[in-house]
Amino acid sequence: MHLATYLGLLDEGEKTLAASFRQVAEGHAEEADVYHLCNRLAAECDRHREHLAPAVARYGEQKVEEPEDLHAEGLTTTRTGGVGLLRDLHDLYLLVCYLDIAWTVVGQAAKAARDKELIGIVDHCEGETSTQLKWLKTRMKEAAPQALIVAS
């Protein structure tokens, strides 16, 4: 069953995302809202993994060979200045998108498998993931004009 593969991907992805949120928080600590929110969203990703853990354990045993290497690239460094912030948030946005659709895919499988526990987990985490996406979009829309037009 390939569902196990996707659960592994989600688990790994949330771990990567948490690390990336923390990376951006530290790298842009001067932007107080980015610092606090990215740290909080990192903790949210940690919680997603905790929620997911029972399902990973249950399906883990039926895991088959991965069809190919499925994993998301995290952020390893951060940039500086207004444009740097925008680009780092942009990278985070792509990473969250990747997870957002992964949750959707797993949710579909959970429904077909009539796995009520997993459906509940996905409902909760998918909602938070899409809010992460909306926040990044809101923040980037605010930052873009100043960064792209005025900042030197």
Partner: peptide
């Protein structure tokens, strides 16, 4: 907005 993040 989302009250936790401020996402519009």
């Amino acid at each position: 907005h989302d009250l936790l993040t401020g996402a519009a």
